[in-house]
């Protein structure tokens, strides 16, 4: 399988106190430029492990990840990560958090005023230009996550990696952020992988939904192509047969074919 990003036969084995634990086995996936792919699966199925391997934060035990023809073996700004709990530096303002990334990535190629503009531009993309000087503790959970997304976008990554970015947010805030992410994806044509638990979120945002089987030895169980036109609107999309079909396919996968053991018993 070949694409812009290629995940080739990736496996991950952890050494634990009770012996070796195979978290991932034989994961292969190709992602085209501009594609938005979500990975969905039950907790503990190794979704985050897979994302960390793509990010370079963790090493694959077997197999390899290639991005734009080059092997991924360490983290870098070409694979910007939006972390689950925003990971903003609490002593820096929203602006300074993004500016830190901009300075690091564009320190040699852009002038100071260009970097200032670029920082503000990215904060404006996530609708946070009104709170440039606020520290993370002065922002709500949703706003922090917006700044986190702005920081990742500002690195102008080849691929954006979103690790359950909306997991800790309430439903309304989530919906707003999903809209923002769709807007940005539309505007920047960025390539993205996002991990989620939420079936509707997956259907609404993705070109393809990658469904993972339960661990140990988790792998890709099924892939659902979402053939909805973009830009998508939440309410209109939800009424289409395609939306219903995808939703059903994912739900069936999660709750019939690969229900969690505990849930099956209950």
């Amino acid at each position: 399988m070949h694409g812009y990003l290629t995940i080739e036969q990736v496996g991950k084995i952890f050494d634990t106190q009770s012996g070796k634990f195979t978290a991932l086995a034989n994961v292969s996936l190709g992602i085209e430029k501009g594609e938005f792919v979500t990975i969905i699966g039950h907790s503990g199925c190794g979704k985050s492990t897979l994302l960390n391997i793509v990010a370079g934060l963790s090493r694959a035990t077997t197999g390899a990840v290639l991005l734009d023809g080059a092997v991924v073996d360490e983290p870098g700004p070409d694979r910007a990560v939006v972390f689950q709990n925003h990971s903003l530096l609490p002593w820096l303002s929203a602006y300074a958090n993004v500016r830190l990334a901009v300075d690091k990535v564009f320190g040699k190629t852009k002038s100071a005023s260009e970097r200032d503009d670029w920082t503000k531009h990215n904060l404006a993309l996530v609708h946070m230009d009104h709170a440039l000087n606020k520290k993370p503790d002065e922002l709500s959970g949703g706003m922090r996550q917006r700044v986190g997304i702005a920081r990742a976008l500002a690195m102008q990554p080849k691929i954006l990696l979103l690790d359950e970015p909306f997991g800790a947010l309430d439903a309304l805030t989530r919906a707003h952020l999903q809209d923002t992410v769709m807007e940005i994806h539309q505007a920047t044509k960025s390539t993205a992988i996002m991990i989620t638990h939420d079936v509707d979120e997956a259907v609404l945002l993705s070109n393809r939904i990658v469904m993972m089987t339960n661990g140990p030895s988790a792998t890709i169980g099924d892939i659902c192509e979402v053939r909805l036109d973009r830009p998508r609107r939440r309410l209109e999309a939800a009424d289409t047969p395609e939306y219903a079909r995808c939703r059903k396919q994912v739900l069936q996968f999660l709750y019939e074919r690969h229900a969690q053991v505990g849930h099956k018993a209950a």
Partner: peptide, 8 residues
């Protein structure tokens, strides 16, 4: 991790 992604 932020530092690693940014390659500080």
């Amino acid at each position: 991790n932020v530092a690693r992604v940014l390659r500080l």
